[in-house]
């Protein structure tokens, strides 16, 4: 089972870290194979930024994502830019506070995409009181919706990746995201 995941947003939202945490959870704690790649061009400094993770129970040879099974969009610009690559019948997770749904509706219908709404930014602000943990909230939602990583592995990977002293807030953020959907 090879799953290709693309997480997109604008520079500064932490989509790269979100991808690293997914990869770490899958490889170090779920003992699957994982490869993480990201865009390194000028777009990594603002505009639409993306991070890609492949998770598989077999060895991953070709390490790049062409047509993701799962697309996560944390900004409208990145949703429009990257949804065209999404596989038919794929999973599309959006932050509804950031993405204008009317503009993606037709695409979702035409390609039989399953759309999920995870208000990560709003949850981070209102429930955790920290806008910057929106990416971790989103990991919670991704974990619950897709099952590509286990909850236990996700928590261990978050603890292993966030700055020392911020673990508790980040786990709260993860739980809030997990309970969103």
């Amino acid at each position: 089972m090879r799953k290709e995941i693309r997480i997109a947003g604008f520079g500064g939202q932490g989509v790269i870290l979100a991808g690293i945490i997914l990869g770490k959870a899958a490889s170090l704690f779920d003992h699957n194979d994982a490869v993480q790649t990201q865009s390194y061009g000028p777009e990594a400094r603002g505009g639409a930024s993306k991070c890609e993770v492949i998770i598989s129970d077999e060895e991953i040879d070709y390490p790049k994502v062409k047509h993701p099974d799962i697309l996560v969009a944390m900004s409208h610009e990145s949703a429009l830019k990257y949804m065209l690559d999404l596989k038919d019948n794929g999973i599309f997770i959006i932050d509804p506070g950031r993405v204008i749904e009317s503009e993606i509706e037709d695409f979702v219908k035409e390609h039989n995409i399953t759309l999920y709404r995870a208000p990560a930014t709003e949850t981070a602000e209102n429930e955790i009181g920290l806008k910057i943990v929106a990416n971790i909230v989103m990991i919670g939602a991704i974990t619950k919706i897709t099952g590509v990583i286990s909850k236990e592995a996700a928590i261990k990977a978050i603890e292993d990746s966030v700055p020392h002293g911020t673990e508790k807030k980040n786990i709260e953020a993860f739980e809030a995201g997990y309970n969103l959907v």
Partner: peptide, 10 residues
């Protein structure tokens, strides 16, 4: 090369 340099794996 850039691909092996920048990607993350275990």
């Amino acid at each position: 090369d850039e691909i092996i340099g920048h990607m993350r794996e275990k």
